[in-house]
Nucleic acid binder design. Structure first.
Lengths: 157, 157
DNA sequence: TGATCTCCGATCAATATGGTCGCACTAAAG
DNA sequence: CTTTAGTGCGACCATATTGATCGGAGATCA
């Protein structure tokens, strides 16, 4: 449950790769093309291409056309949050349908719905979690994040 | 993205309803049958029935057969967590496929996968969030949960 | 014994997803 | 200025998941 799509997975891998090349020690500033990423991680080329196009359209990466072209982070890795990446691919984060319902699109259960408010709270917590972690945090062999077990609860009884 | 299924939605509504009847002021201890819940919340009867059967099989509620039969919480509302409910319906919580992969079921990207560890951390945080909120917390008009904004991050830079 | 209920399994339709194909456009290199 | 390697883009299909439905078997109580 709560699985994220493969496209989103691919997006995360690709961005991590681009970032590590761009800011790495070997060939800093080099652009990365789709083929390179696809081969490195065994991702279907065309699908990855589409993912990267979306990321580009949403301003997370910049594309450079022509030969020797490729992709580049649009801003620093620390300014790209996981939430931005996921939402860019999968649309707005919404645990439940009724969280962003426009008028005329009411759910049948709405009038007596008793779980809406709590679910929205949960959704909010998850969003904050994802929005407080950046691509920069994901970089490097040693993960930079650590979970503060007791405080992550966000729930008071 | 990260949407939970309608079955899970129904499960939450049903459990909330059962709990509120069982521990409410009007008819405490009364059993609740499927039809009552289905009509109250406009849920397809047969689908709800299946959801309740699963919850029953997983030990969250008790079923009583025959006329005047119905469902009852198997234990106190405070001892039933949201995580238990969701996992009961949708299977184990797994943001990404590779989080519970058995041997022989490797993902293609595994060898160079750079996002596995961070994703597992995120998954863990979400699980704790869901596991620290109980059915009891969802009860009543006033939601009992409050988000501790700064501490929910679980991320250190 | 009949009515009312849960239980269980098979099945179907709709939707979402993963993956593919083809072509137009752009920019660097000769 | 032509070639070529690359992105941009939209249509398309196959499959998996999900939501929903149906039919009947087994309890329980009046």
């Amino acid at each position: 449950m709560l699985k994220i799509s493969k496209k989103a997975d691919y997006a995360l891998m690709a961005l991590q790769h681009i970032a590590s090349v761009q800011f790495g020690d070997v060939t800093p500033g080099r652009v990365v093309n789709t083929k390179e990423i696809a081969e490195e991680y065994n991702i279907p080329l065309e699908l990855l291409a589409k993912v990267l196009q979306v990321l580009s359209k949403n301003g997370l990466i910049e594309s450079h056309n022509g030969p020797k072209g490729g992709y580049l982070l649009a801003r620093s890795a620390r300014q790209i949050t996981i939430a931005q990446i996921l939402e860019s691919i999968e649309g707005p984060l919404a645990i439940t349908d009724c969280s962003h319902e426009k008028d005329g699109d009411y759910c049948m259960q709405r009038e007596h719905c008793n779980i809406r408010t709590p679910l929205l709270k949960i959704q909010d917590s998850i969003y904050q979690l994802l929005n407080n972690m950046t691509l920069g945090d994901m970089m490097g062999g040693t993960p930079l994040i650590t979970i503060q077990s007791p405080s992550v609860q966000g729930v008071e009884r």
